[in-house]
Design a protein around this nucleic acid. Structure first.
Length: 545
RNA sequence: CGGGGUGUGGCGCAGUCCGGUUAGCGCACCUGCUUUGGGAGCAGGAUGUCGGAGGUUCAAAUCCUCUCACCCCGACCA
């Protein structure tokens, strides 16, 4: 980053320079305070994990290539920890034997590793990042709910204190497993978000697009009577746009057939032409973590037609149909023949569905699944997540306690993450202008930047030095720009690094016994009598984000 | 994983097609003088295994082979 906060060392791996280190420290402190207040206890676990733990939980396989693996000199498989469910469970399994020792919540703040397929967006998706991870252990679901609630409350407080109001949304559990999950999203107006969320305009339903459901919708206006199937020539029309244009039909009267490879077997997914496939929903239905679009060769082998003309009629592989398609009549599909489509296709009469399940992204503007409201899409950055894990890890890693009746039971667990470096990045993304960053004061590296505009003038230098010692004495964090640079350089740099309050000391105001206070978030400065600066600082900072 | 691209002082680039003096330029850096309220001017100076290995050649940043690293796009198209 240009402002001197960090430097890239390798793809997705960064050095944090002094300013960023202070920001990380501020965020960590807030996180620590709120975690401690919620009753969680800080520990520190190793970065390197033995592969056995990951093999026991099954994530050695399911985490796939994202897991950083290596071997030591004895050829033992080791892992650089991306998260610590396995380690914490095995730790607690050795310590906790009685229900009297529960509930328990352990957390740590530490560097994590994920070998992202494609690191990008700086700290958004790095291969190495700092995360706070907490793990709760409870006797039963009721107790777990209380622990979960506490974490959620603590998360709202953490992000509010950081100046980043968040929205809690439902999310997919992914490779983490377990029962339910939420993500904490910072909403971004511009297009800086890394994922799309849908939220209801009436109730508090909100979900990641990976997970979002919506109310069943009415089928579009269409024929009541089933017409016989008809093959039409559609030369070179391989995309939905081509076919709608060629046949002069709306795209929602078309059904697109996508061929996937799931667990090494082909499967067809059929959704309306105007919808987008949701591979996570499809994968969840099929019971696998990753589904992959079939390559062109496979498509041609299965459909006996070039890519672009796939259809369900005559396909001899499992066919998953989206409910929106199931209610269509006389729709259009590929004909499994080059340059041809089928008209008037109907489910059940012309082909059988292996399953009818929701496998599409929830479209913008559709009905909320919980109330009469409408869903709207917005961009967000995920800064925290919470998972109800059930007994997935405790059962596989021997995490058991004795209950009041002397019976052995696995703990009910939860896992809770806050991306510390990503929170910093989210703040930058949310609060910046063309000149640079505008930090919320709670996580700014310094509260005040002191900028004497010409250090070669004795009066300016002496005034600045006096301010620096007095303000520091008074408990403010002050960055003193004592570089012998020109005024323009210093003022631009001050804007760039985004310290909330700037005190400029220059001849113009100093001649009247004044210095200039300016908030980074505001346009105008105010010349203030030197004697009144202390009081004015309070007023200014109270106004800042 | 597929496609494209780039590696040359600290940073950004030119030179490569068509091999041939001492490998240039801008910014940054150092010294001096002037300047000093929104990214200063002049003068002088330092800085390079041309990503790496091998090869062709009298001669390689330049041609050939291999390799490494990084960046961008795609992998939500049927």
């Amino acid at each position: 980053m240009r402002a001197g906060y960090m430097r890239r060392l390798a793809a997705g791996i960064y050095n944090y320079l002094p300013l960023m280190q202070r920001v990380i420290d501020k965020i960590s402190t807030i996180v620590r305070e709120e975690m401690n207040a919620s009753g969680a206890v800080e520990i520190l676990m190793p970065v390197i994990h033995p592969a056995e733990l990951w093999q026991k939980s099954g994530r050695w396989e399911t985490q796939g290539k994202e897991l950083m693996r290596f071997k030591d000199r004895h050829k033992h498989d080791l892992v650089l920890g991306p998260t610590h469910e396995e380690v914490v469970t095995s730790l607690v399994a050795g310590e906790l034997k009685s229900y009297k020792q529960l509930p328990l919540n352990l957390y740590q703040i530490q560097t994590k590793f994920r070998d992202e397929i494609r690191p990008r967006f700086g700290l958004m998706r790095g291969r190495e990042f700092i995360m706070k991870d907490a793990y709760s252990f409870d006797t039963d679901d009721e107790a777990h709910k209380i622990a979960y609630r506490k974490m959620v409350d603590a998360y709202y407080k953490v992000f509010d204190r950081c100046g980043l109001p968040t929205k809690k949304v439902e999310s997919d559990t992914g490779a983490m497993g377990g029962k339910a999950a939420h993500e904490f999203m910072v909403l971004i107006d511009t297009d800086g978000g890394e994922c799309t969320i849908l939220s209801c305009d009436t109730c508090d339903y909100a979900a990641n697009i990976e997970k979002a459901e919506f109310r069943e919708i009415e089928p579009p206006e269409q024929d009541k009577e089933l017409k016989p199937i008809e093959v039409v020539a559609t030369p070179n029309a391989t995309t939905i746009e081509d076919v709608t244009a060629f046949l002069n039909l709306p795209s929602h009267r078309l059904a697109k057939t996508l061929l996937y490879i799931a667990n090494k077997k082909p499967v067809a997914a059929i959704i309306r032409g105007d919808r987008q496939i949701n591979e996570i929903k499809l994968g969840n239905h099929l019971g696998c973590l990753e589904v992959e679009l079939a390559d062109n060769e496979t498509v041609e082998r299965l459909t006996k037609a070039p890519v672009g003309f796939a259809g369900p009629v005559g396909l001899e592989i499992p066919i998953i149909v989206d409910p929106e398609v199931a209610v269509l009549t006389n729709f259009v599909t590929g004909a499994n023949k080059g340059d041809a489509h089928n008209l008037n296709v109907n489910l059940d009469r012309d082909f059988k569905a292996t399953a009818v399940v929701d496998i599409k992204n929830a479209p913008d503007g559709e009905g909320c699944p919980r109330c009469d409201g409408r869903l709207g899409a917005s961009q967000g950055i995920e800064v925290g997540n919470t998972f109800s894990l059930g007994t997935k890890y405790s059962a596989s890693l021997g995490g058991k306690y004795l209950d009041a009746n002397g019976k052995e039971k696995p703990y009910i667990m939860g896992s809770y993450g806050i991306g510390v470096t990503r929170t910093a990045q989210a703040a930058i993304e949310k609060y910046h202008d063309e000149k640079g960053v505008i930090w919320p004061q709670a996580i700014a590296p310094y509260q005040i930047i002191l900028s004497p505009l010409n250090l070669s003038k004795d009066l300016q230098r002496e005034t600045a030095e006096k301010f620096y010692s007095e303000l520091t004495e008074a408990g403010y964090e002050v960055l003193y720009d004592d570089r012998p640079e020109r005024a323009g350089v210093k003022l631009n740099d001050a804007d760039l690094i985004g310290i909330p309050l700037r005190i400029a000391i220059g001849d113009k105001s100093l001649a009247n016994g004044k210095v200039e206070l300016k908030l980074r978030s505001e346009k105008e400065f105010e010349a203030v009598e030197i004697a009144e600066v202390g009081q004015k600082i309070e007023e200014f900072l109270a106004r800042a984000i």
